[in-house]
Amino acid sequence: MSGSAKEIIAEKARALGFDLVGVSRAEPLEAGGERLREWQAAGMAGEMAYMNRPVELLSDPRKLQKSARSVISLGVSYYPGEHPENPGSGGRVARYAWGRDYHEVIKERLFRLRRELEEELGVKIKARAFTDAVPLLERSAAQRAGLGFFGRNSCLINGEIGSYFFIADLIVDLELEPDEPGSGTCGRCTRCMSACPTGAIKAPGVVDARLCISYLTIENRGEIPRKLRPLVGDWAFGCDVCQEVCPYNKRKAQKSRWPEFSAEAGAGEYLDLLEVLEIRDEEAFERHFAGTPLTRPGRAGLVRNCCVVAGNLRLEAAVPALIRCLTEDESPVVRAHAAWALGEIGGAAAGAALRRAAEAEGDPRCREEIRAAETSCAKKSAPRSP
Rank of each mutant, 00 (worst) to 15 (best):
E269H: 12
G17T: 02
E328P: 02
G75F: 09
S59T: 04
P181G: 01
I157L: 12
A338V: 09
E38Q: 14
G184H: 09
A321R: 15
A145Q: 08
A350F: 12
D179F: 13
S70N: 11
A310I: 04
S262A: 03
G162L: 05
D132C: 11
Y248H: 08
E328Q: 15
K126P: 00
P80T: 06
L74G: 06
A360Q: 14
A352T: 06
C186N: 09
A300L: 05
E119M: 07
E108A: 15
G266I: 12
V105R: 03
T198C: 04
I157C: 01
P61E: 10
R191L: 15
H337P: 13
R296N: 03
I125A: 12
R100V: 05
M44T: 00
V55G: 03
K202Q: 13
G90Y: 04
E330W: 07
A94T: 11
Y96C: 03
R226F: 01
F166Y: 14
L58T: 02
K12A: 14
R365G: 03
H288L: 09
K124C: 01
T190V: 15
L117I: 09
C366W: 04
R287P: 00
D240F: 06
T131F: 01
K380P: 00
A300Y: 07
Y164R: 02
G33I: 09
S140C: 03
E47C: 03
E361D: 13
A373E: 09
R14G: 00
K124R: 15
E286N: 11
E47M: 10
R112F: 00
P61Y: 08
C242S: 04
K66S: 15
L271S: 06
T375E: 15
L176H: 10
S256H: 04
P87Q: 05
A382F: 07
G362T: 07
D240M: 08
P28L: 07
A145P: 00
H337V: 05
L228K: 11
V319C: 05
I167V: 14
Q65D: 12
R128S: 12
L110M: 06
K66R: 15
W340R: 10
E177Y: 07
L57R: 11
G343M: 13
R384W: 03
I323F: 05
F18V: 01
R191W: 08
H288N: 04
K12Y: 00
P364Y: 10
E175L: 14
E330H: 12
A382S: 13
A353E: 08
R287I: 00
E369K: 10
L58S: 03
A321H: 15
K6P: 00
R115W: 02
E223R: 15
G347D: 13
R62G: 05
E27V: 15
E260Y: 07
I161C: 01
N249P: 07
P197M: 11
E138R: 11
V276H: 05
G148C: 06
P197D: 10
R371I: 08
I8C: 07
P293D: 05
N312A: 09
R53H: 04
D132A: 13
A42L: 09
G205S: 06
Y79I: 03
P178E: 14
E369M: 10
E118N: 14
C306L: 05
F166W: 12
G32I: 14
C306K: 13
V206L: 12
L117P: 02
